[in-house]
Design a protein around this nucleic acid. Structure first.
Lengths: 246, 246
DNA sequence: CCAATGCGAGAGCACTGCTCTTGTTTTTCC
DNA sequence: GGAAAAACAAGAGCAGTGCTCTCGCATTGG
């Protein structure tokens, strides 16, 4: 019994039946993602997806229990797509100075967000369905943060990260310690605390641009973003040659 | 001919007709805001609003051309509510040190956002209707930013703001100068540029909390936010007694 | 081979935004 | 004051939505 929506990568020996099921499920998600990119999450219509796929709407309920579940499947995919982009940028820049690695990961996330605004809205915008985010989304979400914190951890390990001058308050340190215990990342609690503070600020920058809040205010958005991200790197204490702008 | 949705404050001598019209318009918006707060923007239903008000749905179209226009009216109201909150915090803290004024305004915005999550989502979350934000929303939006930048400007005027050590790039300065010319605020372009960089980061912090992105990560959210905001004040170069935590 | 299960199609329900028409009330102008 | 004009509420109706249920057909597993 396959659960709905999960990416059935390895179907293997399974009969033709479940293979067909996996293919139809993938086709549904693909068409849904297409409509999402075109019209946005609010206008994503189950019936339209079914229509485009040449099947009747009720048949679609064999694959997804409802519209919200289709959406959460798309959310999980979007999270992991963004996570993959961030991880790729982090590993591609391995060996570079911490501040340029940080900048590369941030740039990659921004690029992905601008290329997929509706999917970005799905994961970092207002929560669309009822209100509760299922657990599978949060664990998919952590990949992005892990990629970000990973370059900080690498910098600390290499001695390329300055210790905070005036440490964060004790309560924040406690939260940081709990997070560290859960994700198992090797870095001082004070540095993780600093990262946890910077983390939402990065998505504030990206979100403002994607959601059009910068329209009529900032025109040279690329340099704006790069400068902001460099400043965040400085806040994080990341070392690196100053402004190795390509 | 009254335009839809606009707050008809001064009806004055006008006949009983337009007075009734203003009242009905206000009642519609009130009920819509109630439903918005309960169910979110996606589930706001024109018919349900009409039903709750004891009228038929088609009658509602005499007051609002459509659902989207009702929503943009709510957006404008939400913007100006948040703007009023920010302005009040700014003027209430007049005379205090710049960094504590900054913190007060930030706190006030966070409090409002947490108290009205769906309205916050309306203005700083994913853009819900088609895609374009009418002009009236952007001018209402500027009030919030003006309150924020206002305390920075006051700090500069009082000599309580440090000049940036390494200035922002030239292109960002150009954008800052254009913004300054448009809004007519007395502060150096470099300082405004710094403020424009910090601005989205603040709403990244608020948005992450309101949208539940901090769930399971940061538990002591108040100290977290205060610390982050203090750090932003430092980035802005705002002077003030260190951590005058109440 | 035959029962069990998975599946697609259709009808149908309750709901949505929106339009058009039909009377009624109110304002406005001569 | 009375007639023309405008504003209004109500209803019917259209196209679309998510979702449920039932019905036959196909595939699967024992």
């Amino acid at each position: 019994m396959l659960c709905f929506g999960q990416t059935v990568a390895m179907v293997g020996i399974e009969g033709a039946r479940s293979r067909a099921r996996a293919e139809v499920t993938a086709a549904i998600k693909e068409e849904a993602r297409r409509q999402l990119a075109e019209e946005g999450a609010a206008r994503l219509s189950l019936r339209a997806v079914a229509r485009e796929l040449g099947m009747v709407s009720s048949a679609l309920y064999r694959y997804f229990p409802g519209r919200d579940e289709l959406l959460t499947a798309l959310i999980v995919d979007a999270y992991s797509a963004a996570g993959a982009v961030a991880e790729a940028a982090a590993s591609d820049s391995e060996g570079s100075a911490p501040s340029v690695r940080w900048r590369e990961v941030c740039r990659a996330l921004r690029r992905w967000a601008l290329a997929h605004p509706h999917e970005y809205a799905l994961v970092y915008g207002s929560p669309v369905p009822g209100y509760a985010a299922p657990d599978r989304t949060t664990e998919a979400a952590s990949r992005i943060a892990m990629a970000l914190f990973g370059v900080v951890a690498d910098a600390v390990a290499a001695g390329d990260c300055a210790e905070p001058v005036d440490g964060p308050p004790a309560e924040l340190l406690a939260d940081a310690r709990e997070v560290r215990a859960r994700i198992g990342l090797e870095l001082p609690a004070a540095v993780l605390a600093r990262s946890l503070v910077v983390w939402p600020q990065l998505f504030g920058l990206i979100g403002f641009e994607v959601f059009g809040q910068l329209r009529g205010v900032i025109e040279r958005r690329e340099t704006y973003f790069d400068h902001a991200v460099d400043q965040l790197a400085a806040t994080l204490g990341l070392f690196g040659e100053r402004s190795a702008r390509s």
